[in-house]
Design a protein around this nucleic acid. Sequence first.
DNA 1: CGGCAAACCTGCGAGC
DNA 2: TGCTCGCAGGTTTGCC
Length: 314
Amino acid sequence: MADDPYLERGDNSVRGLASLRSAAERGDETLPELPEVETVMRGLVPRLEGRVLTRVVQRRPDLRFPRPENFVQRLEGRRVVRLGRRAKYILMELSGGETLICHLGMSGRFLLLEPPAPPPLPHDHVDFETAEGGTIRFNDPRRFGFMLLTETAKLAQHPMLRDLGPEPLDPGFDGPTLLARLAGRRSPLKAALLDQSVVAGVGNIYASEALYEAGLSPRRLASSLGPARAHRLAVAVREVLTRAVAAGGSSLRDYVQVSGELGYFQHAWRVYDRAGEACDDCPGSAPATGRRCAGIQRIVQSNRATYYCPRKQR
DNA sequence: CGGCAAACCTGCGAGC
DNA sequence: TGCTCGCAGGTTTGCC
């Protein structure tokens, strides 16, 4: 992060940072899937929850989508009642009956700035100022992120949320639930996992990781799973995400204390972006078993990279 | 309607 | 050295 202008200022204005950058930019941080969004949301809680948005600045008329009608007016003066998350969406429930739906897209991040907030840099799109004096600044170079406003009472019916599948970290997420969601699906298992109506919050990286943990081929027909394999996959999804949330949470604490480098998401991908490497779970040589492990393969499914071990995953 | 591909957008790395 | 090109991702839109 040495090239990050917010850390090069040297004016100590950045005391906290909930930052996500693309894997292409940084090898040690992941893209915003469920665990990263959860971590960012948690990082925002102490700065936003219960506080009044005294001033909101929007520096361009749109992010991914055109700005909601009267965006600034509908936010200023509102209190942030509660922060939450659904799938990869950060939900900011406001006084007055509306909720702000935030998506980080590919490159969105929130910066937590001490007063006086430094002048905006390129891609600084939205500022939230609170009565306590801090500024929460949304920065998103690629502008795949977005902010939408909707009535809290109708939140579940919002087009972005209404078709979402179960939260994989909720207690109710299990083998039978997943099995029912996959029933009749003619797509490859990997594509089905990426479908947010099957499971909410799984992205391209954790889809590969979960399939590896479950020992299931990404190419397998989604509807070919039985109860046992569905159970294995549900457990794997939950475990992969839980580990990542835990990693993000601990490093977020570290970061806030250090107020400088953000070293979180020191992920340990087992297959993602590891084409050609040896698979951890395959013995170095197992001539007796017949099948040899050729290492981790990269394939493309639905225009997306998939990584897997053809020997371990079937 | 399900499934797949393209579009959106920018920064980066590889190749010339 | 400097340029072009391809690639990465989440979600929506469009096509078959």
